[in-house]
Write a protein that binds this DNA or RNA. Structure first.
Lengths: 350, 350
DNA sequence: TTGTACGCGTTATCAG
DNA sequence: CTGATAACGCGTACAA
């Protein structure tokens, strides 16, 4: 390789390592601007501490080199990664994605990035993910739900960073908690149904721990209020239209359900029940009433419009973000757990 | 602060820095296990190079300390972050989330984590995000679409890492590309409609560049085939049921559309059109036919069942992941761009 | 099989 | 306002 002059070397936009990755450092930018590496660092983190003239030279040098700071090195040195990791059961499920979207928007406004993973339903899966997430040295962690493996709790506690559990409430949060009571929701729906005069009820639920808790609370309360046992169909997998249809099928064929109100663990299932009812020629106003959960976009547009439980998912994410952000600034919330509640939205399906 | 003996110090599960974060290092684990830091490193990365006895001691030390490796430091030292960043227009849009979910699943199987952000529609927004993503020194980047700012291209190229653009095809990819042709899709739908005998057509589209290209191709081809101009309604914002309803309203009220087939840029819009048509007492079989795009879960269950264009979103994500993974192993694909195509699914709505 | 020495690219601290 | 210098925690030679 022929020797090259200083000037030629300076013209090269980036110095590539053996793996081909870009390697423009603050050092290089500084050389080009005629200042030291530290000055470049300062110019980026606190421009007011650098003279306008050198600031300009540095700006130019960054421009021509296409310098992109190495956040890894920065985080290592400062132990502030500006990274927050989030764990949700599923990223394709709209109820979680809208929550995490609101969370991410607010965090981003403050300069944080979100490392997102889906855990599925298993706690072991979650535990392993927590470990890899923690290895990125996030400044905080968002978890969905309040049930975590003992080892997971230990790791989280040991990390010494803020943790926010969303989508539920508890008396013993790991740290922060923002959500609503699933037991209260189930009960409220039962009261609503009893008040509306329904004498018998069924449920269709997905294989979700929180959904099951809502269902149990509903069944308990409905029995207490009306003296009538609740017919129940549970699925192991996620909610879907197909499962909703299948749910009504089983309720009728296997549980001898003939008429009454059906509480579904999600709007998607509820929609499926509605579709199946119509396919069977059942009257969704006289024979079968349906209550969903979530108040998703399509809920007002089903036929008939879906009565459901509204949860402000965006508020959940936003509030979780604010709680963490406040914590970063040293402010602690008056109480660690925030109950955002829910609201029964009465439409025509029940 | 009273002095404490060596033993007491060893009992402490973690050494907390001034910011309270956990600080168990390989060094500390090594001390506890009676070996050096490197040995711990080796035990983790390649256990076969460490004797079973010390391996066991190290395992124990890790157990009691709750050690979680610092991936930041590791990445800095090895310039391999095991991190891949992904940019999608929206994380709440199911079409993108299922794609990125499949992508993430496959990457995770190989030990990679995904840093996910949504860019919205603006290219400037995307450019800024690319910079912050690149600052995390990812091993690869996934981008949605083929339109990026010149500066963004420059940064990406300069990073010297694999880049995969999904959801479209092009002759000049930044690097890798996996998708399908939106022009071909629009044309195919027009041919389908013309073949089916529809004499007039309309479109309802969301404010998405690719949706607009599909629409334009559809309108061109439909005009060519039938000699009939296509009535068009475009929205600036994202697809929604509400926009679908509004779309049909405008088509009828403002564009004098009376009957024919309506090509929507997404199934969601198509569903909205169906709902509005029923609300207006129009026959969705005789007067108005509807074609969606995406073949989402609910498409077979709308009334009537939705005719639509199926895109294998999971295959998109999976194929993109495989392309990157192969590249990591030094294998290059025969050609940089992969066209996964699409398929028109004929149901009852058209 | 194990250890020493060094470097990765920043930030923090202290001088000047 | 600017510059040395020392961490930060780990991988990668190279040596023992």
């Amino acid at each position: 390789m022929p020797p090259m002059s200083e000037t030629q070397d300076r013209m090269r936009p980036a110095k590539a390592g053996r793996n081909g990755k870009s390697r423009v450092t603050m050092e290089a930018v500084g050389r080009l601007a005629g200042v030291s590496q530290v000055t470049v660092s300062r110019a980026l983190s606190d421009p007011s501490k650098v003279s306008p003239k050198t600031l300009e030279k540095i700006r130019e040098a960054i421009e021509v080199t296409g310098f992109v700071p190495n956040a890894l090195a920065g985080a290592l040195a400062s132990s502030k990664s500006k990274l927050v990791t989030a764990l949700v059961p599923s990223i394709t499920n709209i109820v979680y994605s809208t929550m995490v979207n609101a969370f991410g928007e607010e965090m981003r406004r403050e300069g944080y990035q979100i490392l997102l993973s889906s855990t599925g339903v298993s706690l072991e899966e979650e535990e392993a993910l927590i470990a890899t997430h923690l290895s990125r040295r996030p400044d905080a962690v968002l978890l969905t739900g309040i049930h975590h493996s003992p080892q997971a709790r230990k790791m989280l506690l040991g990390a010494g960073i803020p943790v926010v559990e969303v989508w539920d409430t508890t008396d013993s949060p790991i740290d922060l908690c923002v959500g609503f009571s699933h037991v209260a929701a189930g009960r409220a729906v039962a009261d609503f149904a009893a008040d509306a005069g329904y004498a018998s009820a069924g449920t269709v639920s997905a294989g979700d721990e929180r959904a099951l808790r809502r269902k149990a609370a509903f069944a308990d309360q409905f029995l207490r209020r009306t003296g009538s046992e609740v017919a129940q169909v549970d699925f192991d997998d996620a909610a879907s239209l197909a499962n909703g249809r299948e749910g009504l099928r089983r309720l009728i064929d296997e549980q001898e359900f003939t008429r009454g109100v059906i509480f579904c663990s999600s709007d998607l299932l509820a929609h499926g029940v509605l579709i199946e009812a119509q396919a069977r020629g059942l009257s969704t106003l006289r024979d079968i009433a349906v209550i969903g959960f979530g108040d998703q976009d399509f809920a007002p547009y089903t036929e008939p419009a879906l009565t459901t439980v509204r949860v402000d998912r965006a508020a959940l994410g936003f509030t979780a973000a604010r709680a963490l952000l406040d914590r970063f600034e040293g402010r602690n919330p008056p109480q660690p757990v925030t109950d955002l509640g829910f609201e029964i939205v009465r439409r025509r399906s029940a």
